[in-house]
């Protein structure tokens, strides 16, 4: 008995690991089990064999196209959020007066939530909203631009709610890069552009991959904005709408579970690809002293 305990202790197993038990048990019971339950449920349709629900998804374009619609919204939005964050966060490094105010303003949209953003976009960008009024008044357009209840409404809402997260993450990754590295590069003859491209960017790249993943997750689950500012029956019918309708409108839990599984798989494939690319990069310390 004591021998076993010693052997386990050698490998780092002892009573203190019990501290992990509540969290691990919790995640297993409320995340892993429901997920497996959902997978099980999706494989038990009333008709068409175990893969019936998936076959139905693949053959019904109204369901199948939701994946491309979702990716068509979330990939460009996540990419834009990350790419726009880099130069802005890079310019905002260091210490200067007003930095805190500027940062607060940039992360302010986090407080808006998707619903207020949707309401605001409807008011602001709608055919009689200020935006169209201003453009009409300036003579730039002859009739109101349609920016709501279509793709662009949802896209803008994803940018407004997603950018602050991307910006925060990119800023924090940037602040983790030792500033003496750029100084060292300067004394070695690198100009500002070369310093960014050769030193900062390679050290930031893994962080950008992570940021992209998290932004993508955020944009991928677009639900309220797709309903409220989008065109939920047409060009912004994303997969989460289809899943929600299956579960709560048609009470078809099998199809809803299948859609949830497909959504998870598609998302994990994208993340897997990005993280696979990240694994090829240098991902060690970002401090000059190794």
């Amino acid at each position: 008995m004591t021998a076993l305990r010693h052997r386990l202790a050698d490998r780092g197993v002892d009573r203190n690991l019990l501290l992990l038990l509540p969290a691990a048990g919790f995640v297993v019971v409320l995340f892993v089990y429901p997920f497996l339950y959902g997978i099980g449920l999706s494989l038990r349709p009333p008709e068409g064999g175990p893969l019936g629900a998936y076959r139905r998804f693949l053959t019904d374009p109204y369901l199948r196209d939701t994946v491309t619609t979702t990716l068509g919204l979330s990939l460009p939005a996540a990419l834009l959020n990350v790419l726009a964050s880099v130069p802005i966060a890079y310019r905002m490094r260091g210490r200067y007066r007003g930095k805190r105010v500027l940062t607060t303003l940039l992360v302010l949209p986090i407080t808006l939530g998707t619903v207020l953003t949707a309401q605001g976009l409807l008011n602001f960008l709608g055919p009689t909203g200020w935006f169209n009024r201003a453009l009409l008044g300036a003579g730039l357009i002859d009739e109101p631009v349609r920016l709501t209840h279509n793709y662009w409404g949802v896209f803008l809402s994803l940018v407004i709610t997603g950018f602050p997260f991307a910006f925060l993450l990119v800023s924090s990754y940037l602040s983790g890069i030792d500033p003496t590295l750029e100084r060292a590069a300067a004394t070695l003859g690198a100009n500002a552009r070369q310093r960014f491209r050769r030193i900062t960017l390679p050290l930031l790249a893994p962080g950008l991959a992570t940021t992209f993943c998290l932004s993508f997750v955020l944009a991928f689950s677009v639900f309220p904005s797709a309903v409220l500012v989008g065109d939920p029956a047409g060009e912004t019918r994303v997969i989460s709408i289809a899943a929600y309708e299956a579960a709560y409108v048609q009470y078809d839990y099998v199809l809803a579970s299948a859609l949830a599984v497909i959504m998870g798989v598609v998302e994990l494939v994208v993340i897997g690809l990005v993280l696979g690319w990240r694994a090829l990069l240098y991902t060690g310390s970002t401090i000059g002293k190794g």
Binding site: T180, A185, T187, L188, N191, I199, Y282, I287, G288, K289
Partner: peptide
């Protein structure tokens, strides 16, 4: 600084962590 033509050795070395020894030295 990049056009003064000086070399500098930093207190914490400031070696580029993503570049090999050879490429660190070749950087300048």
């Amino acid at each position: 600084p990049e056009r003064r033509g000086f070399g500098m050795v930093f207190q914490n070395y400031a070696l580029f962590p993503h570049l090999s020894v050879r490429r660190n030295i070749a950087f300048g």
